[in-house]
Simulated assay, not measured.
Amino acid sequence: MRQVLPCLLALLPLFCAAKLTVQILNPSEQAVGDAVVYAEPLAGKAPKGKLTGTIDQVNKEFVPLVSVVQTGTAIRFPNKDNIRHNIYSFSRTKVFDLRLYSGTPSEPVVFDTPGLVVLGCNIHDWMVGYLLVVDTPWFDTTNTKGLVNLDNLPSGDYSLRVWHPYQSAEIPAQKIRVGPGAETHFVFHMKLSPPPAAAHANY
């Protein structure tokens, strides 16, 4: 019994964790993909999650277009094209410059401040990517159905936030409370502006 009890206590947070499902729709009730959804605890400090990530360059585009990571994450930027790229950002959250390269740079870029990072390429002006750095491990981006599932969310109070690079207005955060083992569903409506036109060139 003495050996079983510690095991049960270790598993208790998993049994008590909640599941949060969020769907984002536009005013016409159509799904919004590539939107960021994240839950910030209102009390205490959020634990650290996975602190590594990858943003690819494929066919002269950033893949994925929209990424979200926790503060302190180290991201690699593999170039999978047969031409060289020069990836950079002048965003206040993180300024960096990966000089003209092929393959994968030897050192990742660490994003240690929360906020938005807009990515670009000095060679291919139409290449734009978006990285949101958040102070929580509970996040994801919506799929083609506009859905996100945040599993293993400890019970408690959270600020639930959503964001998209093309949103026409800021969406107010929602204060939510999740109970032990609960399954909660939220729907947000978001109006998007047209994305910037991409003009590919032969270089």
Results as ranks from 00 to 15, higher is better:
Arg2Lys: 13
Ala10Asp: 15
Leu14Met: 14
Phe15Tyr: 14
Leu20His: 07
Val22Phe: 09
Ile24Val: 15
Ile24Met: 10
Pro27Asn: 10
Glu29Cys: 05
Gln30Asp: 14
Val32Asn: 03
Val36Asp: 05
Pro41Arg: 13
Leu42Pro: 00
Gly44Thr: 07
Lys45Asn: 15
Lys45Tyr: 03
Pro47Gly: 02
Lys50Trp: 04
Lys50Pro: 01
Leu51Arg: 07
Thr52Val: 13
Thr54Asp: 07
Ile55Glu: 10
Asp56Gly: 00
Val58Trp: 12
Glu61His: 12
Glu61Lys: 13
Phe62Asn: 07
Phe62Ile: 01
Pro64Ile: 03
Leu65Cys: 02
Ser67Glu: 08
Val68Met: 00
Gln70Gly: 01
Thr73Val: 03
Ala74Ser: 15
Phe77Gly: 02
Pro78Ser: 10
Asn79Tyr: 08
Asn82Glu: 12
Asn82Met: 06
Arg84Thr: 12
Arg84Gly: 13
His85Asn: 14
His85Trp: 09
Ile87Tyr: 09
Tyr88Ser: 09
Ser89Lys: 13
Ser91Arg: 11
Arg92Trp: 09
Arg92Ser: 14
Thr93Arg: 10
Thr93Asn: 09
Tyr101Arg: 06
Tyr101Cys: 04
Ser102Thr: 08
Thr104Lys: 13
Phe111Cys: 08
Leu116Trp: 03
Val118Arg: 14
Gly120Trp: 11
Cys121Ile: 03
Ile123Trp: 00
Ile123His: 06
His124Met: 02
Trp126Phe: 11
Trp126Asp: 13
Val128Glu: 15
Gly129Phe: 02
Tyr130Thr: 01
Tyr130Arg: 01
Leu131Trp: 06
Leu132Lys: 14
Val133Phe: 07
Asp135Phe: 00
Asp135Arg: 06
Thr136Ala: 03
Asp140Val: 01
Asn143Thr: 09
Leu147Pro: 00
Val148Asn: 04
Leu150Arg: 02
Asn152Cys: 11
Leu153Gly: 10
Leu153Tyr: 07
Tyr158Asn: 08
Ser159Tyr: 02
Leu160Thr: 06
Leu160Ser: 07
Trp163Asn: 05
Glu170Trp: 01
Pro172Trp: 07
Lys175Ile: 11
Ile176Glu: 05
Gly179Cys: 07
His189Trp: 08
Met190His: 04
Ser193His: 01
Pro195Gly: 09
Ala198Arg: 14
Ala199Tyr: 11
His200Thr: 08
Ala201Cys: 06
Asn202Ser: 14
Tyr203Thr: 10
Tyr203Phe: 12
